[in-house]
Simulated scan of single mutants.
Amino acid sequence: MNIVLIGGVHDSFVCQERLLEVLRQLSESKGVPEFVAVEYGESFYGEYISPQRAVSGMKPSRQEFLQDKISVQNMERVAGVVAYDAITHKSVFPDSPTIWLDNGRNFGEFERQAAGSLLSNKVMAVLDYAEKEGIDPNSQELIEKFMEVELDEVGEPIVNTDRDAMWVDELATCLVPDAEKYAIVIVGENHTEKGEGLLRQRLRRLGHGISIVSLTPLQGHLRSPDCPS
């Protein structure tokens, strides 16, 4: 099976735009994938993440604090980028099954966070940038300007290869030894790198062809396939 392994940064406007572009390109060049796998748990996304994509999911005190600091339009754009990589594929491949790679993960540490914290944290990052650069937080250009520097200070994530192993188990029943078929897997970019125990290497060892797509600005293109050995 041919697997397009797409790596990006969570909650990134830049990567959100590029992911949609990449998926549309794949639709034109390869057609409909057998499935699309995403780095989320289905119930966790539905019960915890999805409500945080709406301003109404915030605590009332957070809503009141932010309502006079940023325009409704910009707030909605920020809300739309939260966990974008869990659902963007549905706008291009509505009929392809979604594989939730983190279905077996314990999310206890995240569930203890305050309601709406994912959205409010991103809003505050945008507002901090606006204040630093002297940009009106109600400006229509704010998000575009923020995108120019958004990934400059992204830290190096800690890689837990146990998750990569869990993901392969989650994919096991979906992967088929058919070179004519393809699937899409969307994860954090660090999991697409070469390295012992990472998803890219684990899938390659199973004999699948791997194409790597990076959503970050300097590498946002389809690289040469990783042919199985």
Results as ranks from 00 to 15, higher is better:
155 G>K: 08
145 K>M: 14
138 N>G: 09
144 E>W: 05
187 V>G: 02
139 S>V: 05
178 D>S: 06
205 R>C: 08
175 L>R: 04
172 A>M: 10
158 I>E: 14
119 L>G: 02
156 E>T: 14
199 L>E: 02
140 Q>E: 15
129 Y>N: 06
190 N>Y: 10
142 L>Q: 08
128 D>G: 08
153 E>L: 10
158 I>M: 10
176 V>R: 08
153 E>F: 11
192 T>Q: 03
196 E>N: 10
194 K>A: 12
167 W>I: 05
146 F>K: 02
162 D>E: 15
195 G>Y: 06
187 V>H: 03
190 N>D: 10
195 G>S: 15
130 A>C: 13
162 D>T: 11
132 K>R: 14
144 E>T: 09
165 A>E: 08
133 E>V: 08
175 L>F: 09
202 R>T: 01
169 D>T: 14
143 I>M: 08
118 L>I: 04
127 L>M: 07
190 N>F: 10
164 D>N: 06
151 L>V: 07
162 D>C: 00
140 Q>L: 14
179 A>E: 11
125 A>K: 06
182 Y>D: 07
180 E>A: 14
163 R>I: 07
172 A>T: 14
205 R>M: 13
145 K>H: 14
192 T>M: 03
173 T>Q: 05
153 E>I: 02
159 V>S: 09
142 L>Y: 10
178 D>H: 06
170 E>M: 07
195 G>I: 09
196 E>C: 07
200 R>Q: 12
190 N>P: 00
195 G>D: 12
133 E>K: 10
172 A>F: 12
178 D>F: 07
143 I>H: 05
168 V>L: 07
164 D>S: 03
172 A>R: 12
120 S>E: 12
177 P>L: 04
177 P>T: 05
192 T>F: 04
155 G>S: 07
190 N>Q: 13
174 C>G: 00
154 V>P: 01
127 L>K: 04
150 E>F: 01
204 R>A: 06
192 T>Y: 03
159 V>F: 15
144 E>D: 15
150 E>P: 02
159 V>T: 15
126 V>I: 14
188 G>K: 04
193 E>H: 13
158 I>G: 00
191 H>V: 08
133 E>C: 09
142 L>K: 08
180 E>L: 11
160 N>W: 00
158 I>W: 00
142 L>T: 12
119 L>N: 01
161 T>C: 05
164 D>E: 05
161 T>E: 06
203 L>H: 04
156 E>K: 04
203 L>I: 07
133 E>P: 00
162 D>P: 00
133 E>S: 08
146 F>C: 05
181 K>L: 13
174 C>D: 14
163 R>V: 05
185 V>A: 02
160 N>Y: 08
191 H>D: 05
145 K>D: 13
199 L>R: 01
174 C>S: 15
169 D>A: 12
205 R>E: 15
168 V>Y: 02
166 M>F: 06
148 E>V: 11
165 A>H: 06
151 L>E: 15
196 E>M: 11
201 Q>F: 00
148 E>N: 05
168 V>H: 01
134 G>P: 12
143 I>T: 08
160 N>E: 11
147 M>C: 09
189 E>S: 12
125 A>P: 00
204 R>W: 13
205 R>K: 15
156 E>G: 01
118 L>P: 01
155 G>V: 10
201 Q>I: 07
141 E>S: 12
166 M>S: 12
195 G>W: 06
189 E>I: 08
205 R>L: 13
128 D>T: 13
